[in-house]
Amino acid sequence: MIITLEELEKATNNFDKARELGGGGHGTVYKGILSDLHVVAIKKPKMVVQKEIDEFINEVAILSQINHRNVVKLYGCCLETEVPMLVYEFISNGTLYDHLHIEGPRSLSWDDRLRIAIETAKSLAYLHSMALIPIIHRDIKSSNILLDDTLIAKVADFGASRYIPLDKSGLTTMVQGTLGYLDPMYFYTGRLTEKSDIYSFGVMLIELMTRKKPFSYMASEDGLVAHFVTLFAEGNLSQILDPQVLNESGNTIEEIATIAVACVKLRGEERPTMRQVELRLEGVQSPDEHVMAVVGEFEANGIDRSSLLTRDERSTEGLTRQYSMEEECILSSRYPR
Rank of each mutant, 00 (worst) to 15 (best):
P165R: 09
V155I: 08
R113K: 12
E313M: 12
R106V: 15
S307R: 14
R280C: 15
L5P: 10
S249C: 14
D288L: 13
G76Y: 02
E89Y: 03
A61Q: 13
L308I: 14
A11Y: 00
V29H: 07
L100C: 11
I33N: 13
K141P: 08
D36L: 06
V229W: 02
R334M: 14
L146G: 05
F56P: 00
D222R: 12
K154L: 05
D222C: 04
C77R: 05
Y199T: 11
G32D: 03
P243Y: 01
K43V: 06
I253M: 11
G177M: 00
T12N: 05
K122N: 13
L100A: 07
V175E: 05
S333P: 03
T28W: 01
S315A: 01
L100G: 10
C77D: 04
I135H: 05
I140Q: 05
A153V: 06
A125Q: 11
E270Q: 14
L96Y: 04
I206F: 04
G223S: 14
Q285L: 15
V294Q: 09
I135D: 01
S238C: 08
Q285H: 15
L37W: 10
D54G: 05
G76C: 02
A61F: 00
L266E: 10
S123Y: 03
H227R: 13
R267Y: 08
I256E: 06
A117T: 00
V203D: 07
T150I: 12
P84R: 00
V71M: 00
V40T: 03
I2G: 07
M204Q: 08
I116D: 04
R337E: 09
Q65T: 10
S142C: 06
I135G: 05
E6D: 13
I240F: 05
G202F: 01
P184K: 04
L308T: 12
K43I: 09
R314M: 09
A18P: 00
T95F: 03
H137I: 00
Y323N: 13
R275I: 02
K265Q: 14
W110S: 03
Q285T: 10
T95D: 05
H101R: 03
S35L: 10
R138N: 10
E248Y: 15
H99Y: 04
Q322L: 08
D149H: 12
L37S: 12
T150V: 09
R211F: 10
R334A: 06
S324Q: 15
L281S: 10
I66Q: 11
L279S: 07
H99M: 01
L208E: 02
K141T: 11
G250N: 09
E297P: 02
Q50F: 03
S107V: 06
R334V: 04
P243S: 07
E55P: 13
L171I: 15
Q239G: 02
S332M: 11
P287G: 09
L331H: 12
F215M: 12
P272A: 00
E269T: 12
L37I: 07
E234D: 08
A117C: 13
D304E: 14
I256K: 04
E89K: 10
N58K: 09
